[in-house]
Computed example of a mutant assay.
Amino acid sequence: MNEPVAYLGPRGTFTHEATRALFPEDHTLHTPCDSIPDVLTAVDRGEFPYGVVPVENAIEGSVTLTLDWLVHHVDVPITGELIYPIAQHLMVHSSRAGEPLSKITRVLSHPQAVAQCRGFLRENLPKAVVTYVDSTADAARQVRDHASETWAAIGPFMAHQLYGLQLAAQQIQDYENNFTRFIVVGKEWAHPLVLPESRKSSLLVALPSDYPGALYKVLQSFVEEGINLSRIESRPTKKKLGTYHFFIDAEAELSQSGMERALTSMESWGCQVRRLGSYPCHSYQTLNKARVDNTSWEAYNHR
Rank of each mutant, 00 (worst) to 15 (best):
L125D: 09
S201T: 04
N178K: 05
V185P: 11
A190D: 12
W151E: 04
P192L: 01
Y216L: 12
S135V: 05
P192A: 01
F120C: 00
Q220I: 05
V130Y: 14
V129A: 15
A147P: 06
V130I: 13
L215N: 13
E224A: 13
R199P: 05
A206N: 05
V185Y: 01
N177C: 01
S201E: 00
L203W: 02
V129S: 14
V194M: 08
R199K: 07
L162D: 10
V218R: 07
A140S: 14
V184W: 08
P196L: 04
Y216H: 10
A153Q: 06
G119H: 13
H160N: 13
I227E: 13
P192C: 01
A214Y: 04
A153L: 11
A137W: 15
S221K: 06
I183G: 01
T131A: 15
L125G: 13
Q173C: 08
L203R: 01
A137Q: 13
E197P: 04
V184R: 11
Y163R: 10
L162T: 02
A152V: 05
L204H: 08
E225H: 00
L121Y: 04
V133D: 10
M158R: 14
I227V: 11
L121G: 10
T136M: 09
K217N: 11
Y175T: 10
D145Y: 10
S209P: 15
L195S: 14
V185H: 03
Y216I: 09
E149F: 07
N177K: 09
G164K: 03
L219F: 15
E149P: 05
S209Q: 14
N178Q: 08
S202L: 12
S198Q: 09
